[in-house]
Design a protein around this nucleic acid. Structure first.
Lengths: 207, 207
DNA sequence: TAGATTGTTAATCGATTAACAATC
DNA sequence: TAGATTGTTAATCGATTAACAATC
C-alpha cells in the first residue's frame, strides 16, 4: 500500500547525486548536507531531501549525510553496486574512444563485447577485447546474458541494430546515433547526442 | 507585454524536434503531423503543438507541417542556422573522436580550435587543426571570439579549465567530464556523461 | 464537401518549494 | 545546551493533457 512508484524524474537525479558524492569523497570530505549538495548541483536543498526520502532515511538531524554511506545506498538503489556487462556496437572513432574509456568500471559497468560490420575493423584488438562481426552479435549477447547495449553506429542503421540487440535479450539501450529509436515496452532507451546539448544553449547566446 | 519567457524545458525539446524532422526529410518525407512527430519521439501530439505555438504558427489545419519549413524555423529559433565555432579542450581518446566527428557542421557547429597540455599531444594534427598548448588557450579563444567550449579533460581539472574558458569569453560549456562545474550567471553548462544515462536505466532492470 | 489537423483554452496532473516539528 | 539539519506536510507553482472551434 506504500508501494507507490518513484517518479522517473527522481530516478534521473539519483546518478547526479552519486556522482557529486563520489567527487566529494575524492576531495577527502566525509560529511555533507542537502544544502551543500544542492549548491553543487544547482538544486534546492528541499528537493534533495525530498528525493532521498523516497528511498529511506539516510541522514542525521543537525549533522547531515555521511558521504560514503549515502553513496553506497544510492549505488544499491540504482543497482550499480555490482558490475553490468555492456555490449558496444559500432567501433568507429567514437566506439573506439568508448571502448578505451577507463571510467566505466568503478561506476558499475564493463564493456564486455565489441561488434562492427566493416571488414577492416573486425578483428581489431582493443584492450582485452576483439571486435567481432555483426553476424555473431545476437548469439554472443544471448550467450553472455548481456542486458545493456551502447550503440555507436550511423543513424541510418541504429534502429535495426537496436532491434537485433533487443531480440538478443538487451533491455537497456544507450543510443549515440543522432536519431530516435522505437522499442517495445520493457526496453528503455536513453540518448547521448552532444549536438542536442549544444543546440539547447545557442538559443540563449546572443549571436 | 506578450514578452513571456519560453520555458527552458520547451527549449530543451526543440533540438529533438529538429533532429526528428531532419531524419524525416532524409527519408524523403515532405509533410508531417504533431501526431506522427509525437509517436516518433514518445510525446503527445498536444505537447508538440503547444511547444511549437510558443514561437508562431507553423502548420496548416487539416494538413500538418511542411518538414523543411518547420526545420528551418526551428533552426532560426535555436540560432543554429549559421555555424558556431567551438573550442575543444582535452585531446585524449574522447577529444580525438569528437575532433574527428563529421556530424557537427550540418547541425550548426564547427570545431575550430584544439587544446591540451600534454607535450606528446600538443602539435598533433587532426583534420585541418593542430593541437595547441593550454597556455595559448585564453588568448586564442578571445581572438577568435569563440563562445562555446567542449571540455573533455579529467574531472579533477574540469573546473579550472572551465574558469579559463569563461575568462576568455566562452558563454556555453558542454562538459564531458564526470563532474559538476559551477559558473557565473550568464554562462550555461550542459553535461554529457554516458554513465549517468546507464545508471538511470539499471534501476529498472531486474538484476 | 468531408475529413483531418492545427492552435488554444481550461482542467488536470505532478513537481517544487516553503516551512517547521523533530531531534541529533 | 544551542545550533544545525533532517524528513515531511501543505501550499504553490508549472507542465501536460483533453477537448474543440477554426479552417485548410
Amino acid at each position: 500500500m506504500t508501494e507507490s512508484k518513484v517518479p522517473d524524474i527522481i530516478i534521473g537525479r539519483m546518478p547526479m547525486y552519486l556522482r557529486a558524492l563520489t567527487r566529494m569523497a575524492e576531495e577527502g570530505k566525509t560529511i555533507t548536507s542537502s544544502q551543500e549538495l544542492g549548491t553543487r548541483l544547482g538544486l534546492s536543498s528541499a528537493q534533495i531531501r525530498k528525493d532521498l526520502s523516497q528511498f529511506g532515511e539516510f541522514g542525521k538531524q543537525g549533522t547531515g549525510y555521511n558521504i560514503d554511506f549515502l553513496a553506497e545506498q544510492i549505488r544499491r538503489i540504482l543497482k550499480v553496486d555490482g558490475l553490468w556487462e555492456v555490449a558496444l556496437i559500432g567501433i568507429g572513432h567514437l566506439g573506439t574512444a568508448i571502448a578505451n574509456y577507463g571510467g566505466f568500471v568503478d561506476r558499475g559497468f564493463q564493456v564486455a563485447a565489441l561488434f562492427d560490420n566493416q571488414p577492416d575493423i573486425i578483428g581489431k584488438q582493443i584492450g582485452r577485447l576483439t571486435v567481432q562481426p555483426m553476424q555473431t552479435m545476437v548469439e554472443e549477447i544471448r550467450h553472455k546474458k548481456i542486458r545493456i547495449a551502447m550503440i555507436t553506429v550511423p543513424a541510418k542503421v541504429a534502429q535495426q541494430v537496436a532491434d537485433a540487440c533487443i531480440e538478443a535479450g538487451v533491455r537497456s539501450i544507450l543510443c549515440f546515433a543522432p536519431t530516435s529509436i522505437t522499442t517495445p515496452k520493457g526496453v528503455r532507451v536513453e540518448y547521448s547526442d552532444p549536438v542536442l546539448h549544444l543546440q539547447r544553449m545557442t538559443y540563449y547566446l546572443q549571436s
